[in-house]
């Protein structure tokens, strides 16, 4: 039997428009934005159309950068195409000020470091081009320990 590799590509470019475009431009500037839905909820990434009524959504709202994990899954053996090359968590992540979560990878080190409700912040890519990969991954928020103040004796 003869076999041969086959790679399918769809090498065309699309414009993202004023709503998704605003999200992508925000990423380049290290800012997260969502859109306000008809019922007042803030949806992230922004939706072009209201998920319930279907009407155009045009109000862009800044959210984050702090965020909370709403559910997660632990990947022990990342795929070559995954965002991280070491064990990590996929998570649905709700940025502060948003009402819906977005998908992201959390670079948490170990499964024991992840839980629902974990506070995370973005780790931005050094070079950003207005793509979702500009948000390289999320990392646990560093909490400031209570005892770091220098005590004078």
């Amino acid at each position: 039997m003869l076999t041969a590799p086959l790679i399918i590509e769809y090498p065309f470019k699309r414009t993202t428009g004023p709503v998704i475009g605003a999200f992508m431009t925000g990423l380049r500037e290290r800012i997260l934005v969502g859109s306000r839905a008809a019922d007042g909820r803030v949806i992230v990434p922004p939706a072009e159309f209201d998920p319930v009524t279907g009407e155009d959504l045009t109000e862009i709202v800044e959210v984050g950068p702090g965020a909370e994990v709403t559910t997660w899954a632990w990947v022990t053996e990342p795929h070559a195409k995954h965002p991280l090359d070491r064990p990590f968590a996929w998570a649905l992540i709700k940025p502060d000020g948003a009402d819906t979560p977005m998908l992201g990878a959390v670079d948490a080190g170990s499964i024991d470091a992840v839980h629902t409700g974990l506070r995370v912040v973005p780790r931005w890519a050094d070079e950003r081009e207005g793509r979702i990969e500009d948000l390289a991954c999320w990392v646990p928020e560093r909490t400031t320990p209570a005892n770091v103040e220098y005590k004078r004796s």
Binding site: R14, T16, I20, F23, M24, P45, T70, T71, W72, A73, W74, V75, H79, K81, H82, P83, W90, A91, L92, M102, L103, G104, A105, T116, R131, I132, E133
Partner: peptide, 29 residues
């Protein structure tokens, strides 16, 4: 990985979240 191509092409598919991982998010929830 092929099934990731049915996801949002701008904000989700470029991350290549495989079917099993997405189902695992649902199971955890």
């Amino acid at each position: 990985m092929v099934l990731t191509r049915q996801l949002d092409p701008y904000t989700v598919a470029p991350l290549w979240p495989d079917t099993v991982s997405l189902a695992a998010l649902q199971a955890r929830a």
